[in-house]
Amino acid sequence: MMKTCREATRLMSESQERDLHISEQAGLKLHLAMCTPCRNFSKQLKTLRRITQSYAQGGPEKVDK
């Protein structure tokens, strides 16, 4: 069955804590193939993680202007 965006974003979020099952991965891939906003969300989750890590490593201090 087709996943909703709510469900797809939930799986994308959880994939940052655990490996998704094959069936979850397949359903998610199918959804992402057809849903641009969720593809954007997927990239943004990765960006968010990088940004937060950079923040934890003193990111704001590295810029002076």
Binding site: P37, N40, T47, K62, V63
Partner: peptide
């Protein structure tokens, strides 16, 4: 509420 494409997300961390 649809997530849009973020332009140049990498450069943000260099901006105070």
């Amino acid at each position: 509420e649809k997530p849009k494409r973020w332009a140049d997300p990498e450069s943000a961390i260099y901006d105070k």
